[in-house]
């Protein structure tokens, strides 16, 4: 039974993730005054890459990278319950709490670093270095906000945190939410924190050397991962969801906000983005933490 549920969760995340990517490309296209691709274009792309042949070999470690990332994304998804106050679509969340998820969030970039490091492509290595040096700054405001939330709701269980919110934490404690949102924009790889795969600087960063099936794997991974992160955000700050419709609505609003923000700002340099993340969102989150514990 649980296996069926997990499979369903995976399918939902896969489908909705690609749908969101399609919407993302369409919405940015409208920002840029054009028509945009078909809604399922990202899905077509990933299938196309899956059908391509591999012509290079960098050893098994290189290919382990995408596989670690993929498994990281899938397990992250399984530990995040889709809905509150029900055991449907809760996956493995009864076996692990928020700490497991936070740990799994770091697994992806690390796996990537392991793989890309053996690839020999200097741009890939550079992208990974950028990603890792940004990682700490990126996670800090998010962790502070999460700690505050855990102390507020008195639990580390995600569905309990979601259920605990009589008013959404985003409205009750806006400073915490803003601090975490900055991190979230970075985690989603949006401007101005998209230093990892900046095309005009380091080609496509860590993905430079991947082609064919492994690139398809990376694309599917990022679709699933995107949905997982959106659901996590909704559960932590937007009061969770009770049905699919509510979940889709809340995640989509969040997603729309993130991509509109990304369309309006240029890219920071790596030191600039670390600097910014350590100063502004961290300060906001710390003030939020103090206010939240004070009251």
């Amino acid at each position: 039974m649980i296996l069926l549920e997990l499979l369903l969760m995976l399918l939902v995340a896969y489908g909705v993730g690609f749908l969101y990517y399609g919407l993302y490309r369409n919405i940015t296209a409208r920002f840029q005054r054009r028509f945009g691709p078909p809604l399922w274009q990202s899905f077509f792309d990933s299938i196309k890459f899956f059908l391509k042949e591999e012509s290079t070999s960098h050893g098994w470690m290189f290919y382990l990278g995408p596989i670690i990332m993929m498994s990281g994304a899938i397990t992250t998804l399984f530990f995040i319950p889709f809905f509150k106050e029900t055991t449907n679509f809760s996956g493995l969340s009864s076996y692990g709490n928020l700490f497991v998820v936070l740990y799994l969030l770091v697994l992806g970039p690390l796996g990537n670093a392991l793989g890309v490091g053996t690839g020999g492509n200097p741009f890939g290595a550079m992208g990974v270095t950028r990603g890792l040096s940004r990682l700490f700054a990126l996670e800090l405001p998010f962790y502070i906000a999460v700690i505050a939330i855990m102390s507020l709701s008195g639990s580390a269980d995600i569905s309990e945190i979601a259920a605990h919110q009589s008013t959404m934490y985003a409205l009750a404690y806006p400073l915490l939410f803003i601090g975490a949102l900055f991190s979230f924009i970075g985690m989603m790889g949006q401007s101005p924190f998209d230093v990892v795969g900046a095309p005009v600087e380091v080609y496509s960063g860590p993905a430079s050397e991947f082609s064919g099936k492994f690139l398809a794997l990376l694309m599917s991974q990022s679709a699933i991962y995107t949905f997982a992160k959106l659901v996590l955000m909704v559960n932590l700050f937007l009061g969770g969801a009770q049905g699919f419709l509510e979940l889709l609505l809340k995640t989509f609003v969040l997603f729309l906000f993130v991509i509109s923000f990304g369309s309006l700002y240029g890219r920071f340099k790596t030191p600039q983005s670390i600097d910014f993340l350590l100063k502004v969102p961290t300060t906001i989150a710390v003030i939020g933490l103090i206010l939240a514990t004070w009251s």
Partner: peptide
Amino acid sequence: QSGSIGLYAVGQWAIA
């Protein structure tokens, strides 16, 4: 110039 900082919307407008 806008593409070089990743601000693609400006680039698209300018080319149009």
